[in-house]
Design a protein around this nucleic acid. Sequence first.
DNA 1: GCGCTAATTCGTACGTTTGCGACATACAAA
DNA 2: TTTGTATGTCGCAAACGTACGAATTAGCGC
Lengths: 109, 109
Amino acid sequence: MHAKTAEFPAELQELAQVAKLLSHPARIAIIKLLASQKTCISGDIANELPLSRATVCQHLQELKNAGLIKGEISGLNVNYCLNTEKWRAIKGQFEALFALTIHDINCNC
Amino acid sequence: MHAKTAEFPAELQELAQVAKLLSHPARIAIIKLLASQKTCISGDIANELPLSRATVCQHLQELKNAGLIKGEISGLNVNYCLNTEKWRAIKGQFEALFALTIHDINCNC
DNA sequence: GCGCTAATTCGTACGTTTGCGACATACAAA
DNA sequence: TTTGTATGTCGCAAACGTACGAATTAGCGC
């Protein structure tokens, strides 16, 4: 985080942080893959994306550290899945923003 | 845009692009300010944020180039306001994603 | 134990973003 | 026309993000 970022309200920083996680197509692709339930296995996820395994793993860790996904070891594989509770919270945050931005008041400009 | 980004579906790239715009607290702050209607004037926006005028202007241009806000000259001032139509579209895109992520299906991990 | 496979971390290269001072533009009023 | 004020652009430096090969960790079967 840039030094200046700390000077904004925590609420904004938090929302910006989640938006940043969604700001790369690979991470959105991972989320959609997990949502579609076709697979939860790390290697299978990597095979679906046009990126190296190392890079996919990096994206997975970012999502996991933020709590958007959960991962658990299953023998030689690692299964990932969405953290539905977290997504409920995120949905609420974005909806609060959209509620502000879509209004009928006419702007004076 | 990184070269690899182009290898993902256009739909994902588009959503990621919008998310990137929301990934900085200054830009969210600008959006909330405009939504609150207290002011639309460029200089007033800059005064509300802990950033230099040059930096705020840069963020404003990014939002404007993406169509999230509109700006028009009014004498010596420039008035900015939200592009409500665009925000409706954005809301739809995010809601489509959230609809996928919040489900009752139990994951096998 | 040994080899095999899956997943992750490390180190590094490269591009992008952020932030700002200084400069440029543009309008308004004196 | 000169002066002052509001905006926006340029060029640079520092911080951050993305991507990958190589090295590492960790479990399984023999």
